[in-house]
Design a protein around this nucleic acid. Structure first.
Lengths: 271, 271
DNA sequence: TCCCTAGTTTGCGTACAATGAAAATCAAGT
DNA sequence: ACTTGATTTTCATTGTACGCAAACTAGGGA
């Protein structure tokens, strides 16, 4: 979960390697193929090759190897590739061992029980927030977030929380080029506005996504910290505005803050 | 989901490649490292190297590459590796696209609603049955199956179902050397006994795991078929013997059979 | 029916990437 | 400090992954 400083970031000699330092190119490419395929969902050889930026023959051999390992499936009928069971198994290993998910599980359930809305757990990964766990609310309205999916950092509550306690240069780097993509008129699209918002998040202790990602959906996110006191994840509740008004914000926060504290404590956090 | 005949199983020239044909060794090794790590859960470099059967330096570079890609995480404090978020994301892509899971979801929920016990969905992968989906029962007793985990084929209901309509040589191959591992005195440990059991499964249309894996747990599994009429997955219900007696078998079967037929139909199966 | 086109698969020679051995660091015990 | 064990880096060598191009497929269109 830490994943902070790579063992060998420092490049003693200024020698410019192909990509990053100490990497095995072939594996890098293979993982790229797998990731591309995951994003495409289902694709032909050439589509994957194009997405991964590799030649057809190379892609063919990599896909074939992935297939033999069960990480990729190949439907004979259509000739299309898709992600295989083995990938799912490995991913499940992450979920099983993950201390974060285990620490959060019971609190999330009780939170959902009290508020009736869907709770999500997200972590920061490169330049997106990834939802790694979800407990669905009792309500019938299906919430947007797809498990395992990445979300843009500029227009989600969890994104704000995950960046709020990071350095400004880091924040800017992760957000990329302005103006940021907007989903609704409320989306924040510039760095200054975003930094200002982060300051607000820090002072109030929670972030709000006020129909910034989807009209009619409000969302509150709180930080989870571990023994290092760093924010390692974000807990969030999403609900249609009809059931989550501005007036309810304090009440929601009180409940979410309590849950966050319990989870953080389980992760070794001390106030 | 099909994954039947590899594009190039036929070896024209008898040229013996290192392992299988047309594989990229480095990627193969990298995936091996990832899989080994997934099984170990959390491990040091040397442990992974040993598990994957590679030299320390090679393993180091592969792990480092996997880490850069987010497939592996490295906890600075302990220096241990574990599976990373990216692997989870890719696995989630499998779950999302998977027609099988989508087809089964609603029926599994209704099944659990009616029977009150945990339902599982499993597919065949190499020589194990992999649980890919689960809907937990309302009862408080936690069932054994871990999502994404593989189960031995000889002592589980889903294993029997998944093999029952396969050729005998295939069955024997997947089960490996006799005697098979036994978990309880009821476990089937020899091929003849297992084949006889499979015949029974074929004639009655369901398989029973009668405390063969764990004393006190009974389990019923039924086949799911797709448009090819092949068995592509197995649905199962597990319950403590106290709530699932032999007398209840016919009643359970009636309900499960109905669910199986609905799911199979969604997969394009025609009677 | 037979091309024609776009996609997939295989052969082959070469460049260079991945490798293991061993050296260099690093981290803890004793 | 000394020893032991694990991790990281260097380095020369080999064999592997690569791209090109050729051989195959397969699905339309005319």
């Amino acid at each position: 979960m830490t994943d902070t400083s790579p063992p060998n970031t420092r490049q003693k000699t200024g020698r410019a390697r192909t990509g990053d330092a100490g990497s095995v190119r072939t594996l890098e490419r293979g993982l790229n193929v797998l990731t591309s395929l995951a994003e495409l969902g289902q694709a032909s050889l050439t589509q994957v090759a194009k997405a991964a930026g590799l030649s057809a023959s190379t892609t063919y051999r990599l896909l074939e190897t992935l297939r033999q390992g069960g990480f990729v499936e190949w439907e004979e009928r259509s000739g299309l590739f898709s992600v295989g069971v083995r990938a799912y198994q490995v991913g499940a290993a992450f979920a099983g061992r993950n201390t974060l998910m285990n620490a959060a599980q019971s609190e999330m359930i009780s939170l959902v029980g009290d508020l009736g809305e869907t709770a999500n757990l997200a972590v920061l990964r490169e330049n997106e927030a990834v939802y790694i766990h979800q407990v669905e609310g009792s309500q019938l309205v299906r919430m947007f977030a797809q498990l395992g999916a990445g979300t843009l950092l500029n227009c989600s509550g969890v994104g704000k929380v995950l960046l709020a306690w990071q350095g400004e240069e880091d924040v800017a780097g992760r957000l990329g080029a302005q103006p940021y993509a907007a989903f609704t008129p409320n989306s924040i699209t510039t760095l200054p506005a975003y930094l200002k918002e982060l300051a607000k998040v820090r002072s109030q202790g929670y972030a709000l996504d006020d129909e910034e990602r989807e009209i009619g959906v409000r969302c509150m996110a709180t930080p989870l910290r571990d023994h290092t006191r760093q924010v390692v994840a974000s807990l969030s509740i999403s609900a249609p505005t009809s059931r989550f008004s501005r007036e309810q914000v304090p009440a929601f926060y009180e409940r979410m803050d309590a849950a966050s504290r319990v989870i953080s404590a389980r992760l070794g956090w001390t106030p």
